[in-house]
Design a protein around this nucleic acid. Sequence first.
RNA 1: UGGGCGAUGGUGUAACGGUAGCACAGCAGAUUUUGGUUCUGUUUGUCCAGGUUCGAAUCCUGGUCGCCCAGCCA
Length: 613
Amino acid sequence: MSNTSRPETSSGAPSPTARPNHFIEDIIEADNASLKWGAWGTTHPDRADTPKVHTRFPPEPNGYLHIGHAKSILLNFSLARKYHGKFNLRFDDTNPAKEEREYVDSITRDVLWLGAEYLSPPTGGGLFFASNYFEQMYAFAEELVLKGKAYVCQLSADEVAKRRGAPGVPATSPHRDRPADESLRLLREMRDGTHPDGAMTLRAKIDLASPNFNLRDPVLYRISHQHHHNTADRWCIYPMYDWAHGFEDSIEGITHSICTLEFENHRPLYDWFIDAVNDGRPPEKKIHHPQQIEFAKLRPTYTIMSKRNLLKMVESGVVHGWDDPRMPTLSGLRRRGFTPQAIRAFCEDIGVTKVESSIDLARLENAVRDHLNRVAPRRMAVLRPLRVVIENYPDDRTESFDCINNPEDPAAGSRPVPFARELFIEHDDFSPNPPKGYFRLAPGQEVRLRWAYFIRATRFDTNPDGSVSTVYATYDPDTRGGDAPPNPDGSPGRKVKGTIHWVSARHALDATVRLIDRLFTAEAPGERTGNYTDDLNPDSLITLHGCKLEPDLANARVRPNAENGCTVGDRVQFERLGYFCVDQDSTPSTPVFNRTISLKDSWAKAAAKSPQR
RNA sequence: UGGGCGAUGGUGUAACGGUAGCACAGCAGAUUUUGGUUCUGUUUGUCCAGGUUCGAAUCCUGGUCGCCCAGCCA
């Protein structure tokens, strides 16, 4: 194996094709034209006159990142890159009950693996934690209390829910008109740990009758005596997402706060919070007011995206962990052999709009085929071995054939592959009773062994169950290398329609191969019965033992990438089968390969259509 | 029942009052030492009803359908 230690973030990337702007780019270009956010100025002398564009990806560290997050990460990152701006990674860690350090680590790793550079120039804006802003957010809260724009409410969670009202029916709270100094005292007691969890909350005094329920005096702070992975036990009150989020963006100087559609109803709330803080402040004390823009999240077919259900699959053992190669998580896709380039090309390809839609999973599968076709070295591997004996080939002879590594990439060179009297071919590549249009090996039928010889099957043995156990064949020495010699009159020699892959039995390496397929059989898992587990694909993982590899594959390795802490296995194409990736479960004696994606198979497709086959 | 948002082929996505285009999928063919790749051709579309206009996917009015919102989650 060669040439696989290059960083995941460079080379082999599809050249970006010209694409019309999407609506967010339109907004940014209009903002830049009017200098709405000013220019970078003295903060970045190298781009002083460049209009400011600052984006961010704000995950909550309560699970692993999945392909849906990739769209958001890449959208924010590419906007920063395209407009010579900055991109932050910020953890929205405002709920210690659900968050863990493990998730922080996996997220930073996955974001870097994708190539979304948040640390180094030119795009790197930095790594941040919302929990580092707790002091500032709390100060804003006291300011609102003092301004009469927030109050401490002693209703229980149940009571608040009951008094929430309905469309047309206002909410109520008996503590709404509590004097500011009393709210301030209670808020400080909340912060100081005087009160138990749930005893009271700080609420914004907005509009109990608003048709937008988010404005019906939302909770700003709740009491939660919880250890936090970053702030430890410094706080026993934690800001609600709505209260915190807008300020996080404000503090970091985010210009375009890009989020998904479900937060559209929250935008008036964020605007209100910032305005409430700015109300009465002199101009130089006013805080930055970012612009929120919502887009439709990615929803691929044949998979689930909800973190809750992904977590359930991990915990219930339906899959073998967050990085199970069948998972739509970035760590799962990586382990399965997907490349960041493929994921980037996919996310670029699907567009950015406000229309909620499903993306055919085939688009993602296609993206990885497209990339791997260009970069993956070809190797021969037989997954379901069938023994072939070439009766007119001497038993004591071994030849070596020079095999092209990648017809798409002449620079990839070639490798020697040993050939001998006994070979393995794919079970599917021999048929005792070939259907119409079957170009592979069959009694009396000639086929090309890739890069080697033409062979013709003469007879075969069967097992007691009737299945074929051994095929006997003869080879044509004049077809060495895989071409028939020209006829005496100079015209091209005979053609053969089928070419099959093979491995010399004597030289073969044993391996385990996992055939990974879609986790679900339904386009929208759970839609039919309400339970996504009803649509699980029983064949999503088929493990094959005793697969036979050409000896060069002894060099295939799993290797760590120092840059992002990821472990990545070598990726290859097993000719005529698909793209495969060395799994971390490999041992020195038995390599394990995961199938990233099969090759397109128009024969299988045609065969599936005609019932007689 | 209130509010917010959306609607273009099978699936995505362009068109910014002037020929509905592109990609994926499908189908047909060519090339091919991978039934892969590549190339060529091709089927299929503006949610509905009115209106404005020489001209509407685009503007206006009214409807229909879909998604989101009543966590001390994010």
